[in-house]
């Protein structure tokens, strides 16, 4: 008996076959005694597991202990006191933001200089005079995510000379 038929029988028992596929399989079962036997066997197995159910397990620790670990992690609902703090933080940010515009202009100039490779050439000049130690290449990779819920892990094996970025969408 081929694997496809066996899996089709299982899908039929699980109620996952389309109406058309179901009719085709029923016709096959009428003719094929071996397939019919397998169908009965699978049905018995499936029913048995559901009937018996699972072993019951309970939390091995006290609820208070279990809950504490959770409550330490979850964000409490913002209290009026927290809201006051947020407002204070916003005022402080406004004061600091006055410096952002000139800071941004300086950063843009610095960026343009970097992009043109001026700094690289200056530093290469230093290298040629034997003072390269100051220049350090980016030590590791940067990762941008384009998808929500997308995570990544990065890892570097020095012994193998392998850098890994593991991406996951789970």
């Amino acid at each position: 008996m081929n694997e496809k038929l066996v899996i089709q029988i299982q899908a039929y028992l699980d109620g996952e076959l389309s109406a058309e596929a179901r009719l085709q399989l029923l016709a096959r079962l009428e003719k094929d005694s071996e397939a019919r036997e397998l169908c009965d066997s699978l049905k018995a197995e499936q029913g048995f597991l559901k009937d018996v159910g699972e072993n019951s397990h309970e939390l091995p620790v006290a609820h208070s202990y279990f809950w504490k670990a959770i409550s330490d992690e979850i964000q409490p609902h913002p209290s009026p006191r927290n809201e006051t703090r947020h407002k204070e933080a916003a005022v402080a940010f406004q004061r600091w933001s006055a410096w952002l515009v000139p800071g941004g202009v300086i950063a843009c100039i610095a960026l343009v200089v970097f992009q043109k490779g001026v700094l690289d050439d200056v530093l290469d000049g230093i290298k040629s005079t034997g003072k390269k130690a100051a220049r350090v290449a980016p030590s590791f990779h940067e990762i941008d995510s384009q998808q929500q819920n997308a995570g990544f892990i990065s890892f570097r094996s020095e012994s193998e000379g392998v850098s890994v970025v593991w991406i996951s969408n789970y």
Binding site: H57, E58, L59, H63, F66, W67, Q75, P76, H77
Partner: peptide
């Protein structure tokens, strides 16, 4: 955002989720 309510859910379903 009521953590007390959430704790009640943990109390009710804690065993099942652990299982």
């Amino acid at each position: 955002g009521d953590a007390v309510a959430f704790e009640e859910l943990v109390r009710r379903h804690g065993d099942k989720i652990f299982r």
